[in-house]
C-alpha cells in the first residue's frame, strides 16, 4: 500500500502527514510534486494543508486546476480514497469533486485553536474507526473555512449523510458559539456521494499523537489504511 501526499507551491502540512502515515500508522507514503502528473502505483491520496499559490483568486483555486488533479480524479474514480485537509479541502471543492465552497470566516480572521467535532457518519473509508455521535478533538488553522452550499445541495448532503464532522460544544451540541467560522449547519467536513473523497477543515495530522494533545485524528488515517487493505 502506498499513499501519495501532494505538494503544490505553498503546501506546508505535507511532511506532518508523511510523518503520521509512515512513523505512526506505519504505512508507505511519499510526497509527490504537482508537476508529476502520474499517480500510477498509489492506492490513495492526501491533499494536505497550506497556502497553495498564496490563496490567490480564492483559496485552492489555482491548485485545483493543475493537471495532477486529473490524475486524482482518475484515482478516485477507481474507488480509491482521497483525503483533503484544510487547504486540501478548499482545493477539492474548487476542483468540484466535493460540493459547496469554503469562503472567508464569518469573523474575518485567521483562527487557530482546538475544536470539538461530532462524528456524523462512520460509513466512510475515513471514519470506520469512530463511533457515530462520538465527540472528538482536532485543531483548526484557517481564514477561509466557512462552508457554504446552496440550499438544495445542503439538503442533499444531509439526506445522503455526506456530512462527516460538525463543530459542536463539549456536550456535543451544535451551537453558534462552537462554530468557528460561520459554516452552514456547523459543517466541518463532507464526503462526495460515492464517499471515497473526504474534505475537512480541521487537521487530523495535528491530532494524531497524544503528545500533541489529542490522537483522535489518527483514526482518520487508520480507517483509510484499513479501507485500502480491504479493497485494493
Amino acid at each position: 500500500m502506498k499513499i501519495a501526499i501532494l505538494q503544490f507551491g505553498g503546501t506546508n502540512c505535507d511532511l506532518d502527514v508523511l510523518h503520521i502515515l509512515k512513523d505512526v500508522v506505519g504505512i508507505d507514503a511519499e510526497t509527490v510534486w504537482y508537476k508529476q502528473e502520474n499517480l500510477t502505483g498509489f492506492d490513495g491520496v492526501v491533499v494536505p494543508g497550506g497556502f497553495s499559490y498564496g490563496d490567490y483568486l480564492r483559496a485552492g483555486a489555482i491548485a485545483a486546476r493543475t493537471p495532477i488533479m486529473n490524475s486524482v480524479k482518475k484515482l478516485a474514480a477507481e474507488g480509491k480514497p482521497v483525503l483533503g485537509i484544510c487547504n486540501g479541502f478548499q482545493i477539492l471543492t474548487e476542483a468540484r469533486v466535493l460540493e459547496g465552497a469554503l469562503t472567508t470566516n464569518e469573523y474575518p480572521k485567521f483562527r487557530c485553536h482546538w475544536t470539538n467535532l461530532r462524528v456524523e457518519t462512520v460509513d466512510t473509508p475515513f471514519t470506520s474507526k469512530f463511533r457515530k455521535g462520538e465527540i472528538i478533538r482536532m485543531p483548526i488553522a484557517h481564514m477561509e473555512g466557512q462552508f457554504y452550499a446552496e440550499e438544495k445541495t445542503l439538503a442533499e448532503l444531509d439526506e445522503n449523510e455526506q456530512v462527516v464532522f460538525r463543530y459542536v460544544d463539549e456536550n456535543g451540541k451544535v451551537t453558534d458559539a462552537a462554530n468557528p467560522n460561520g459554516s452552514l449547519e456547523n459543517i466541518a467536513g463532507i464526503v462526495n456521494p460515492s464517499r471515497n473523497i473526504f474534505g475537512l477543515m480541521p487537521h487530523p495530522e495535528r491530532a494524531s499523537e497524544s503528545i500533541l494533545g489529542s490522537d483522535h485524528g489518527l483514526r482518520v488515517f487508520e480507517s483509510m489504511a484499513d479501507y485500502i487493505t480491504e479493497n485494493f
Binding site: 469562503t103 472567508t104 464569518e106 469573523y107 457554504y148 460561520g182
Partner: peptide, 13 residues
Amino acid sequence: EQKAGMLDPEGTT
C-alpha cells in the same frame, strides 16, 4: 461579487 444572502465579512468589518 458575492451572491445575495452570503456573508461579506470584509464589508461588515
